[in-house]
Simulated scan of single mutants.
Amino acid sequence: MQFKELIAQETNNICEQLSSYEDRHTPFKELFLTKDTINFGPIKLLDRASIAMRAVVLFLTVLTIYFFSTLDYQSIDVLKGFTDTFVNFKTMFLNPYAQRFTLGEAFYNVVVTLGLAFLTTLIGGIVALLLGLLAAQNLAPKQVTNLIKGFVAIIRAVPTILWVLIFAVAAGLGSAAAIIGMSFHSISYLTKAYSESFEDLDRSVIEALMASGANWWQIVFQAVIPSSVTYLLSWTFLRFEINFANAVAMGAAAGAGGIGFDLFMAGGFYFDLREVGFITYLIIAIAIALEVFSTNIKGKLQKSI
């Protein structure tokens, strides 16, 4: 209590000193403080969530500091590392060249990678649409939504490459394992995204349809999906871009083919930095084209709605 009174007294003294200035007709007149504008309310204690969050941040900070303190910096030549990196970047991006395949073959491999991304996104979107409806709290019982959300959260916590390797045990390395693993992860990702989009729908609309005698399927197809179609497309296009990047990685890690396998061979087996730069430029161009295409489609859809 004494500390609170001391703070209030010091603040009152500061306000009185500020009010003693003669030039009070300035554009910043409204910024002058008075003792009536200061509220010394009760100090709020931290809740359990805030304490847990701060504890996690503190633990990660200490762990990071410990990790960097154990590194042996004496064996690292920082200047040589920066020099070699600059030379490699210069070779990759200023002198791109492909000598093992033609531009037509490169385009074919890009189409294979795009096909892999499109197929996994299509499978994931169809399955996730049904699971997302069952995972939305305003459309399904709480027990069902909690079960589905918990299941997809576990799937989403495992990286895509691990799912591909898990399914590769049964299907073998190749496009089959890549399609199954990427679709598996896409389903979990889109289920969460779709369910949250459905939950944003106004509850009064659903209650009005239920009062008029509409069944569950009529509510879904007449109110839920039409109101959420722009969000569904946005999440689907985003996942398609993610699957394209994953398809490039799966071409190298799981032998799924496509431009990713060429990138793996150029960066590892043949070690041709110029070819790596050429493939990198090609992947960036395709990614930009996908972004422009998705933006145009979403813009036209929003105008039509």
Score class of each variant (00 low, 15 high):
Q2S: 15
Q2W: 08
F3D: 15
E5L: 10
L6K: 14
A8H: 08
T11H: 01
N13S: 04
L18N: 14
L18I: 09
S19G: 01
S20C: 05
Y21T: 12
E22A: 04
L31R: 07
F32D: 06
T34H: 12
K35W: 09
P42T: 06
P42L: 13
I43M: 14
L45M: 06
D47S: 10
M53N: 09
L60T: 06
L63G: 02
T64G: 07
S69V: 10
S69P: 07
Q74R: 08
F86D: 00
N88Y: 15
K90D: 07
Y97I: 01
Q99S: 14
Q99D: 06
F101A: 11
L103F: 04
L103N: 08
E105G: 07
N109Y: 08
V111D: 05
V111W: 10
T113R: 01
L114P: 08
A117D: 00
T121A: 00
I123N: 04
G124V: 00
G132I: 10
A135Q: 00
N138R: 07
K142R: 13
G150K: 00
I154K: 11
I154T: 04
V158F: 09
L162C: 12
W163I: 04
I166L: 15
A168D: 03
G172H: 01
G174C: 06
S175G: 02
A176M: 08
A177R: 06
I180T: 03
G181E: 02
S186N: 12
S186R: 00
S188K: 09
T191F: 03
T191P: 00
S195D: 03
F198R: 07
D200V: 12
D202K: 13
D202G: 10
R203C: 03
R203T: 13
A208G: 00
M210T: 13
M210I: 10
S212Q: 15
G213K: 09
G213P: 06
Q222Y: 10
L232I: 07
W235T: 01
T236A: 02
R239E: 11
R239H: 00
F244V: 11
A247H: 05
A252K: 06
G260Y: 12
G260T: 07
G267H: 01
Y270T: 01
V276K: 00
V276L: 04
F278R: 08
I279W: 08
L282F: 05
L282T: 15
I284G: 11
A285G: 06
A289R: 01
L290F: 09
V292M: 03
F293E: 11
I297Q: 03
Q302G: 03
I305W: 04
